[in-house]
Computed example of a mutant assay.
Amino acid sequence: MNVHLVNDEKFVNLSVKRFEQYYPGKNLFVVGVPKGHSGPLQHVAPHPRVKVLNFNSRNAEKKILEWAGGQEKINLFVHFLIPSKARVALRLQGSGRSVKTYWIFYGFGLYNLLEERGDYEVFDNKKPHSWQSVTLNWLKNAALSLLLRCNMFTVCEEFIQKLDYFCFWNHYDYQLLLRHFETDAKFRFFRYYEMPLQKAKPQAPKSKGTVFLNHSASASGNHDSLIRWLRPWVEKGEVNRVVAPLSYGSPQVAAEVCRQGEEELGSTFEPWLDFMPKEEYFSALNEISVAWFGHNRQEGASNIFFFLANGTKVFLRSNNNLLKLLKDKGYYVFELEEYVEKADAMDVMSMDEMMHNYQLVKQEFSQVAIDKSYQQLIER
Rank of each mutant, 00 (worst) to 15 (best):
V3R: 04
V3Y: 02
L5F: 14
N7V: 02
K10L: 15
K10E: 14
N13F: 04
L14F: 15
S15W: 04
G25E: 14
G25K: 06
G32E: 13
G39R: 00
Q42Y: 11
V44G: 01
H47G: 08
A60E: 06
E61I: 05
E61H: 05
K62H: 14
L65M: 15
E66Y: 08
E66V: 00
G69S: 04
N75C: 14
V78F: 03
H79N: 15
L81E: 02
L81Y: 07
I82H: 12
P83S: 08
S98H: 10
V99R: 08
K100Y: 11
G109I: 03
Y111A: 05
L113M: 15
L114W: 11
E115P: 00
E116M: 11
E121Q: 10
N125I: 10
N125H: 13
K126F: 00
K126Y: 02
K127L: 08
V134G: 01
V134M: 04
T135D: 06
T135F: 11
L139H: 00
L139D: 07
L144P: 01
L147Y: 07
F153Y: 14
I160A: 06
D164H: 14
N170T: 12
Y174L: 02
L176Y: 00
L176F: 00
L178N: 05
H180F: 13
A185C: 08
A185V: 03
F187A: 01
R188I: 11
R191S: 13
Y193I: 06
Y193H: 15
L197T: 09
K199T: 13
P202T: 10
Q203M: 13
P205H: 05
K206P: 06
K208L: 09
K208Y: 04
T210L: 08
V211W: 02
A217L: 11
S225E: 11
R228L: 02
W233I: 00
E235P: 03
G237D: 06
E238I: 08
R241Q: 09
V242D: 03
V242I: 09
Y248M: 08
G249W: 04
S250H: 05
P251V: 03
P251A: 07
A254S: 12
A254Y: 04
A254N: 03
A255I: 01
Q260D: 09
P271M: 10
P277D: 09
E287W: 01
I288C: 06
V290A: 04
F293H: 10
R297L: 10
E299M: 09
S302E: 14
L316N: 05
R317C: 15
N319M: 04
N321C: 09
K324H: 14
K324L: 11
L325S: 12
K329F: 11
L336M: 06
E338P: 01
D347W: 05
M351I: 15
E353Y: 09
E353D: 13
K362E: 14
Q363N: 06
Q363A: 12
E364V: 05
I370H: 01
K372D: 15
Y374H: 09
Y374M: 06
